[in-house]
Amino acid sequence: MKGYEYHKPQTIKEAIGLMEGLENAKYIAGGTDVMVLVKQGKLAPANLVSLRNVGELLYLDLQNGVKMGARVTHTAIANNEFVRKRYSALPDGAGVVGSRQIRNVATIGGNICNAAPSADTACPLLVLDAKVVIVGKSGERQVPVDDFFLGPNKVALEKSELVTGFIIPAFGDNTGSAYIKHARRLAMDLPVLGIAARATIKVGGSEARCKDAFGAADDASGIIECLEAEGLVFEDVRIAMSVVAPRPMRAKKAEEAVRSKAISEKLLEEIGEIAASESQPRDSIRGEAWYRREMVKVLTKRALLRSIERVIRPDSTAFPNRLW
């Protein structure tokens, strides 16, 4: 491990300026990706430009959507009551990154800029239509997060460009979202795959009866039947998947297939199938391709149901496991 210089700019401008002038330099936020790579010898930067002291990157504005600085930690996201309620998929993801120790220092900016195919906040940001705010020497630009991921660990950043934050539009309270991380253990694990969903719904009949169904039914079919009977329609849907492609991706065909459709067991099966056909999983030491494809089917359905539940039963925190 060769030595590196550690720079501590105070402002965005200073950070970009440093980055412009330095050879073989790398931004470092929480360092939980960077330092691992350095220790493994996979990254040997001559200069590290720390974002730790750049106060401009630390904000969380929840009026009219979410405006969130790149340096916000996973813990800060996971613990925010309002975000949990209205943008549930995001804290679902941030809350399961690594371990408590990691979440306390690791940032959302780092997670997205590192662009691992398995990044736990990537799918949530994809389904929440988030935009990435980028500042470079020639000013600011905004890029939909879907256009930001280029490939494994590759993002649409030019040299010296910095991600300053993210913008998530406001959704009405007929919108719910969820992220399911499918991993082998409950901490310190990368997902075998991750699925996020967002559903904007309309209920023709009685919401109260839907609510009762969520509370009482002992399997998913019972709930779906009731939702169908009450005329639940998917007005708009987003589905995103991780680990099943070189980069976190949206299942756009599946999204299209559900839009404006009434819920039914058959429809949910279909969405899963379509999403699975869009995925391109591979065998790896962490999971087999066939299994990942199967899980896309199962978890897409579950993530959608969980999103619906969050609209209909916003106060229930625990999604009952017995549904499956």
């Binding site: 371990s99 082998r184 253990r185 409950l186 901490a187 310190m188 990368l190 030491i285």
Partner: peptide, 16 residues
């Protein structure tokens, strides 16, 4: 050995 670390060797954690 292709999983020579605690990330990929799945010993249970305190959360499990």
């Amino acid at each position: 050995v292709v999983n020579a670390n605690f990330r990929d060797y799945k010993i249970l954690t305190a959360n499990d």
